[in-house]
Design a binder for these strands. Structure first.
Lengths: 257, 257
DNA sequence: CGATTCGTTGACATGCTTCAAACTTCGTGG
DNA sequence: CCACGAAGTTTGAAGCATGTCAACGAATCG
């Protein structure tokens, strides 16, 4: 970027994007007018309101300034599959259908402030490499979820989620050791492919093992090392028939407890 | 696009991208020289060769002209998680790490010809909206895999994969009713989060039910309706505790057999 | 203050993984 | 060209993790 320190910034600095290297709008477009337009396209939404719904025209993506959002899609059977939880600084809404229709929905989990990035502003004069970088970030998240769903058991999935949330809160300057979940057990289950009962039971068991303390939505991580170990654990102890088995170690709750 | 019919095309037309609306290079950049460069950056790789590996610099993405590729990542335990299978016309390699390092690897499943799209050519003068569209396509694939892994049982997963492959072959002008799998049972298991034995058993059972005929890597779909029904089926019969249960129907193998 | 949603706990059923072994195909070298 | 070994595929039996069903307690909301 070519912004010098002595220049008067025409765009208000927004520290929520700091972890990614500063305001995303500035990263993507150089045109000041468009930067200004982007910055002005803010939104505040109350808990439970949709940012967009499946089937709507996908003409923008978003960055969270404060609050949190979940994205999800609905199966043919009417079931909900949560695709991700987004925190301040996160980008979401990049996915769209072939015909520019939203393939997923996004809803706020609490009162939330958003930056809106209309595609129209990005039709030209965009840094494609930076745009790819943003998209790649999202894909990596998705891939991580795939890995969790395909290879980890209930303990590993819950531990992974908590570990991930803790790391993200920490990276944003909040405490990674104690935080409040903005999503329900239902949401967690729908995200991790587990029944609500399993989520509840697993959290209780973690607490009994002294790994964390949980009271409704409040979570306090007591033994982060154990949590990380569980998060890295695979579903079973494949040795012979596993996919390209390596020499990795294993972490069972019993071992960590 | 502003290419007129009477103009002499400087870039060789490549029908493999037709299903997406013509050559991807032309869609993304207008500069003829860069289009020409893109077209010249072809590659042919033999079976089992890597296109890129985790940790390498992510400076390009690819389109398959012929053959097939699987992308995968390796867990901390040394296990492999297949993220996707790519056929002619498919784009892959858009995902990258925070620091532009590959977060996944890609390897050919057979002799394969590729188009290479270096990010450097896309640094400027790119149609951002079109680029987002390409990335969104990939994300939708990922989301579909998440849904399969989180919500479907073994039958549903295998059926979904076969149904998907059939549809993709059909869309490319090949037969969707009979094709040869370019991936092993192992790969399928690593993709769908199932043990190899489960993959094998499920295929056998599908055959016994008259849904398909399978001999090693050769697959012939006999009852596509039944397969689709199974593919759309959810893992269980959640009624009360399921995530936002709807009125969708169910399809068990028993019902379709 | 009652109704509804959310979270927890228990008992039971089952689908998948794991372990074990045989068979087939393919590649390699004698 | 055949023999041999390695890898891929199939089949069987048993154990266990997770889903399902059911019921209760707690918090939230109007």
């Amino acid at each position: 970027m070519q912004t010098k320190a002595h220049e008067v910034p025409t765009v208000h600095p927004c520290h929520v994007c700091d972890s990614r290297g500063g305001c995303l709008g500035r990263q993507l477009v150089e045109n000041r007018d468009i930067q200004q337009k982007l910055f002005q396209a803010k939104r505040i939404q109350h808990k439970g309101e949709h940012v967009f719904r499946e089937g709507e025209t996908a003409d923008a993506f978003y960055v969270i300034r404060s609050g949190s959002v979940k994205s999800y899609l609905v199966t043919e059977d009417g079931e909900e599959q949560v695709l991700g939880f987004y925190l301040p600084g996160d980008v979401f809404g990049l996915d769209g259908g072939d015909d520019d229709q939203r393939a997923s929905s996004a809803v706020t989990l609490e009162t939330t402030s958003l930056c809106r990035f209309p595609h129209a502003y990005l039709a030209d004069g965009v840094d494609g490499a930076n745009l790819i970088r943003v998209a790649a970030e999202q894909m990596q998240r998705d891939h991580n979820l795939v890995l969790i769903l395909a290879r980890k058991d209930a303990d590993g999935r819950i531990a992974s989620l908590l570990d991930d949330l803790a790391a993200r809160y920490r990276a944003r300057g909040y405490s990674g050791a104690a935080f409040v979940l903005s999503m329900s057990r239902q949401d967690i289950g729908c995200y991790l492919g587990l029944a609500v009962e399993t989520v509840s039971r697993t959290l209780t068991r973690f607490q009994e093992c002294g790994i964390l303390r949980v009271n409704r939505r409040e979570v306090e991580i007591l033994d982060h090392a154990a949590l990380s170990k569980l998060a890295g654990a695979r579903a079973g102890a494949r040795t012979a028939s596993g996919c390209a088995a390596g020499g990795g170690g294993e972490a069972t709750l019993a071992a960590a407890c």
